[in-house]
Nucleic acid binder design. Structure first.
Lengths: 230, 230
DNA sequence: AAATATTTGTCCGTATGTATC
DNA sequence: TGATACATACGGACAAATATT
């Protein structure tokens, strides 16, 4: 019976506590299901439900014949649930995600500008050049675009931010809500402007280019308050 | 055997497809486990594993004797996994979360300012007044603080943003990483400044107050580029 | 109000495929 | 190659919670 909460949730927490107590790190194996079941005094079925739940969250990976392995931090599993909520009538969730992404990028661009190394900028340059000739291949543009934006903010070394943006891009690639194909030339120019500003170490130009990048018909201009404050 | 992927994942997708096909909305009930098991040609255990996975992701809620109900959009379940990754050596994830929250709030504050209604501001005023006398009760301050910030951005009607911030606050309440108790008076002043600016319809004051709010010893000042651009 | 049916919750046992040694 | 350990998957059974009549 559900004394306080469901059994498999309690087991979930007990496993979590066990991870903490034993100081298990990514790559380590959890005790076998049978052992856990015996230790917690529950059936293997309940342990399985708990572990399967952890698996879809990207916390562990269970492989037959080997064991259940702890994985490094990730939030990619967000995609899983996003797909579920992608039912007709709730498609606004995708637009809201894009809105969050736009705000995040514009908000973090300052830190990113100063964190980017030469190699990063060089990589961005290569990506833009490849974008220019990516007209033909289906889906290639999305991948390059994603690479571009993730590279921008990777130097910040914020795993939460990385994972979040990655998840949002995953949604983007699948739903192609932005349909950039029609104005791909436009998009090339926008990315080109960003890279050029970076190569010139021009922060102001970088800010302008980023705001320009997000000012397409699909996106509302987020506005800036620098003309109001001071 | 795992032909392509694990069976419960396939069932997960089949259930998803079923939701789409039948156009199930939040509040609707999924078919019983036995029916699903029969329909998909798998054991009931596998169906349960799939459903439990959906449950921890906040997609459904299974209640004994009633059925499995579809839930409205949410991202609160992120908390579940964040807690797991909170193992020693990875505690930076929490700080990264706070950093993301700070950027989100500062980035969205403009939209929030213009979206806030009178009732919202009134509610904020009440919360601040209650914060002032929340010294004694343990944990009360955190709840009020959370209420304050969520109220700020709720008028934006962005479920993704709401859910995200809610999850981050959940982490905050649990870990109390910011330990505001020592300088609670300081915190009262910061919230007070925000509300006063809102009550006076003073956008610039609002911006200053928000930046002031996030400028404590714990938080790095995110900086602003208005003095550089233009 | 009470009996009955439905549905999830939990357990047990067993067989099989697979990775590791 | 074989043996072992482990996750995978199945089926049946009963309890507990809820809904229905």
């Amino acid at each position: 019976m559900a004394a306080d909460q469901k059994l498999y949730v309690q087991v979930l927490r007990q496993i979590h506590q066990l991870i903490l107590d034993r100081g298990l790190k990514p790559g380590d194996l959890l005790p076998p299901e049978q052992v856990l079941a015996a230790e917690f005094g529950v059936s293997r079925n309940v342990v399985r439900e708990a572990i399967k739940s952890m698996e879809v969250m990207g916390i562990v990976r269970a492989v037959a014949g080997r064991g259940t392995e702890l994985l490094p931090f990730s939030m990619e599993y967000i995609l899983q649930s996003m797909l579920f909520f992608q039912v007709p009538g709730n498609e606004s969730a995708v637009r809201q995600m894009f809105d969050v992404r736009r705000h995040l990028e514009l908000s973090y661009m300052r830190d990113a500008f100063y964190a980017l190394e030469k190699e990063d900028i060089q990589h961005l340059r290569e990506v833009v050049d490849r974008i220019r000739v990516s007209y033909e291949q289906e889906g290639l543009f999305s991948e390059l675009d994603r690479d571009f934006h993730l590279t921008l903010f990777r130097p910040l070394k914020n795993a939460v931010l990385d994972s979040l943006m990655n998840a949002i891009w995953e949604v983007d690639v699948r739903f192609q809500l932005e349909e950039k194909r029609p104005h791909l030339g436009d998009s090339v120019a926008k990315h080109e402007a960003v890279v050029q500003a970076l190569e010139a170490h021009d922060f102001i130009g970088f800010v302008k280019a980023m705001e320009y990048h997000f000012s397409s018909g699909k996106y509302r201009n987020p506005g800036s308050y620098e003309e109001e404050v001071q």
